[in-house]
Design a protein around this nucleic acid. Structure first.
Length: 341
DNA sequence: AAGAACTTCAACCGCAGGATT
DNA sequence: AAATCCTGCGGTTGAAGTTCT
């Protein structure tokens, strides 16, 4: 048996809310609250709206203390950090950003942040093309913000050498991993973040394209990347197979069963969820990591090895960005201080 | 100036899961 | 235990606005 509809679809209004509807809904909720029943609420107010629609309108637009637009760089970094850690759990990410809604963050990520990750790179690529004298290595079709790259254009080495276009939190992906604390295993096996294939997939997912002569076993010495074969012991491999949580930014003590100690390694900084952040550091995320919660990634499935990358390169779009011009000074992750608690 | 192309974001949809009957 | 209700979530859509040619 199918589910009963939440409302009489024939008698509900759809589409944009009028100021009158807004004011009705807002004043009612401010006076009476939601009454714990969104479905019944529109009838009480006399709105021809679905209860779900009312809820959405309230949460995303009418609720007090909401911020719209104008995401700061700090917020960008938080979003990226959390996206890396937990994937597209927009409601959880929104919970860490006061005044932001999950819908806002989702829209922002889908329409801007992803492009920010690529914009600087594309600009640099164009400059390199000019410097090389347009020798045919790059086929550039540029219309508005659409750019179609040839297969040779998007070389990983160039990308990594120009990593400043990445937001701070992404930079560790493409830089020399910092040694983890002695008690920690480095998350650097083939499932991990410092995985050339994963990085390639990340960039492809984000709209880049790699040369056709890419070989998964190529050692990217020039990239200053250190990959797993140099660091993974048998023990670590077993450990990672068993404890892989999909987040390359999570490392875990292999021999501390008593405390199930979980550390985040974000931007080269380690966050100890047990000793340093207990009760303060995003408990939901803590929980997800400690329970191997499978993250969901929108476009970043590379974290756990999605193979099927269907990329429509004709749709690759890059808008210019100045994210890259952001400071390259030491970055302190917001969650480390200001956003605790 | 006009139309095409592109971007943004509010709102919708369907699903999952917990609560209730 | 099963059916139903309700909420919350994430993915997607499409209208409106903006930029480009």
């Amino acid at each position: 048996m199918g589910r009963a509809p939440c409302c009489d679809k024939a008698n509900v209004k759809k589409g944009p809310w009028s100021p009158e509807e807004d004011s009705k809904l807002k004043s009612y909720i401010e006076q009476h609250g939601t009454g714990g029943n969104w479905i019944a609420l529109p009838q009480k107010i006399g709105l021809k709206r679905c209860g779900k629609s009312c809820r959405l309108r309230w949460l995303n637009y009418l609720r007090p203390n909401l911020k719209h637009g104008g995401f700061s760089e700090e917020e960008d970094n938080i979003i990226c950090s959390l996206y890396i850690s937990i994937g597209s759990r927009w409601s959880i990410i929104a919970a860490q950003l006061p005044g932001r809604t999950d819908n806002d963050i989702k829209n922002y990520w889908n329409t801007r942040l992803k492009k920010k990750l690529l914009g600087k790179h594309r600009k640099d690529q164009q400059q390199q093309a000019r410097n090389r004298g347009n020798n045919g290595a790059i086929v550039k079709q540029e219309s508005n913000n659409n750019r179609v790259m040839s297969s040779n254009e998007f070389s990983l080495s160039n990308l990594v050498q120009e990593q400043p276009y990445l937001p701070h939190v992404m930079q560790p992906l493409l830089s020399t991993p910092q040694p983890p604390p002695p008690s920690m295993l480095s998350y650097t096996n083939q499932q991990g973040f410092n995985d050339q294939d994963s990085i390639r997939k990340l960039l492809m997912k984000l709209g880049g394209r790699f040369s056709g002569d890419y070989h998964p076993n190529t050692t990217f010495d020039a990239l200053n990347l250190q990959f797993s074969n140099a660091t993974s012991s048998t023990h670590e491999q077993v450990y990672d197979q068993e404890h892989h949580v999909g987040s390359s930014t999570c490392v875990n003590s292999s021999n501390d069963n008593n405390h199930n100690q979980v550390q985040f390694a974000i931007n080269g900084q380690y966050f100890d969820s047990v000793q340093e952040e207990q009760g303060k550091f995003i408990p939901e995320i803590d929980h997800m990591v400690s329970t191997n919660y499978p993250p969901r990634f929108d476009g970043l499935e590379f974290f756990y090895g999605e193979e099927d990358l269907n990329i429509d390169h004709n749709k690759i779009q890059g808008s210019s960005t100045n994210w890259s011009e952001a400071t390259t000074s030491t970055y302190h992750h917001p969650l480390d201080s200001k956003y605790q608690g």
